[in-house]
Amino acid sequence: MIPSIDYLLLSAALFSIGAAGALLRRNALIVFISIELMLNAVNLSFVAFARQLGDMTGQVYVFFVLVVAAAEVVVGLAIIVSIYRTRASVDVDDADNLRG
């Protein structure tokens, strides 16, 4: 059996990669995919802890993360589409109307 710590370290690596993507990229769609990557990393650690503790609750939490992810994607993509309609760009740096 693989020790749970290996799964958790993998999860930490994926979470950091996702965070790097969200900070690095300026294309709103890729920033969004990076956030999804972070959510998936969290799911992995939920499932790893569920096995470590012999408790199904961790697996059930994955479903709630999925619900949040789905709702977030639907609204987020709608926002990106309407931004694209007004400025013909998905670069997050272009959406700076509130900048002083």
């Binding site: 300026r26 769609l29 890729i30 994607v73």
Partner: peptide
């Protein structure tokens, strides 16, 4: 099957290449 397909859908709809100025 659903969330990422929606992503691809929007990417193709906007036809944004790199999208970064």
């Amino acid at each position: 099957g659903a969330i990422l397909v929606l992503f691809l859908f929007v990417i193709m709809l906007l036809n944004a290449q790199s999208g970064e100025g």
